[in-house]
Amino acid sequence: MVEAFVLAVLELFYLPLRLDGTLLPKVADYQFPVTILLAVVTTPLLVVLASRYADGALAAAAPLLVWFGTLLYFGLFGPTGSTVLLGDWRTLLLFAGGALPGAMALGAFLGRAARAGDH
């Protein structure tokens, strides 16, 4: 859950990265939301890892819930009390990129648990 918290904070704060020559190479000042790709990979991975050691659905869902709650909290009430969420497509893709694959991984765990309970 700590990893989900840290990843959510980093993904949110680095979401506005641009290819403007400041932190990344200069390529016509394009938006480069690399943290969305990070969310797509790490959120379901954390759910899968938690489901291996979980004794129930809530424990398996904990990384996804922590990730989502952290994004909402820090996005709406940032470290200085201001809104950090961007009002464009990158925010929607960040939420979808982490929540949908994470929910699919959780659903796979719940399906396996239900199948094991039927036998």
Rank of each mutant, 00 (worst) to 15 (best):
L65R: 10
P63L: 00
G56C: 11
G75M: 10
Y30W: 06
F95L: 08
G21N: 10
A57Y: 05
S82P: 12
Y14D: 05
E11R: 04
V40R: 05
L49H: 07
A96Q: 12
D20K: 02
A116H: 05
W89G: 03
L37F: 15
G21V: 08
W89M: 07
F74P: 09
L24R: 06
L110M: 12
G117K: 15
T22I: 14
L45K: 02
Q31N: 15
R112F: 15
H119Y: 14
A113K: 01
Y73P: 02
H119A: 13
G69F: 05
L94T: 03
L12R: 00
T91V: 08
Q31F: 13
G107N: 08
M1Q: 14
A114W: 11
P25T: 03
D88V: 08
G98Y: 03
V40G: 03
T83D: 12
P25N: 04
L37K: 12
V48M: 08
L15R: 02
L58E: 15
F13I: 14
G21C: 02
V40C: 08
F13R: 06
L17H: 12
L23R: 09
T22M: 13
A59P: 05
T35A: 10
P101N: 07
L110P: 13
G81E: 11
V41C: 03
L85G: 09
W89N: 00
P44T: 00
D118Q: 15
